[in-house]
Simulated assay, not measured.
Amino acid sequence: MDLDHALKYEKPLRLDDGLDNKKPKERYELWERNNRLSLLLIQQKITRSIRGAIPKCETAKEYLEALDKQFNPMEMCGSIMLELCVIRLISIGGVRQHIIKMRDLASQLKSFEMEPTEQFLVQLILNSLLAQYEAFKVSYNTHNEKWLVDELLFMCVQEESRLLISVLKEVSLMRILLACGIGGWDISPLKESEV
């Protein structure tokens, strides 16, 4: 299946002259099928809000041209850069997805010839981490060795695991203290299944 067939070639003429000439008819049907599939695929990958702003088009090529008219490439570049600079990790858990998203945003800048360097991206990622990662950031900054994004990803996932374990220990300790009535609270002991 050649989905870009409708983008590469112009729409062939449809011959309905009643002649038994199958070649042009097959060519037209192939182009029509590929155009329909290309149009559906493009529309499926575009968010609903953007889809509504694009006028109805008969061909995939016309649809892509209408999309180009709607968006200024430099506006897109600016919004990608802004998101890359202001994105923050919002909770412990999900640091892998957070770093992958930042790496994806940085790679989108390649098409605008504005790809950040590896070390700049590492610093952006470190700056986007929560306050719980401060000791980790200090440790990175005191080392002479600079990490690549892949190494930072691995280290952040390890740090996240350590942070999650410490949070779980704190929660367990608080439950034990509350169950013992320490602090003047008058609460009934927790059931074994809750501890």
Rank of each mutant, 00 (worst) to 15 (best):
L126E: 04
F120D: 10
L168Q: 11
Y133I: 01
V95R: 02
Q123M: 05
A179V: 00
T117Q: 12
F71P: 07
K45A: 15
S188D: 13
G93W: 09
Q158W: 06
L37G: 06
E145S: 12
L82N: 09
M155Q: 14
T47H: 13
Q132E: 15
E192I: 09
I100N: 07
S139W: 06
K8Y: 07
E192D: 12
K110S: 12
I165N: 01
F112R: 01
E151T: 14
F120I: 10
I100E: 14
Y63P: 07
E159R: 15
N35F: 07
K110V: 01
D16A: 02
M174C: 05
K25Q: 15
G184V: 05
G78N: 13
I176L: 14
Y9H: 10
L13Q: 08
L84F: 04
K146L: 09
D17K: 02
L84G: 01
V86F: 09
A131H: 14
R48H: 15
I50Y: 11
L124N: 05
Q97D: 06
L30K: 14
Q70I: 12
I90A: 04
M102H: 01
L153I: 03
A6N: 05
H143Q: 14
A179N: 15
V86G: 00
K137L: 09
N144K: 15
K22C: 03
A106Q: 02
M1Y: 11
C85H: 14
L13P: 00
P116T: 01
S172W: 06
I99C: 03
F112G: 02
L124A: 07
L19W: 08
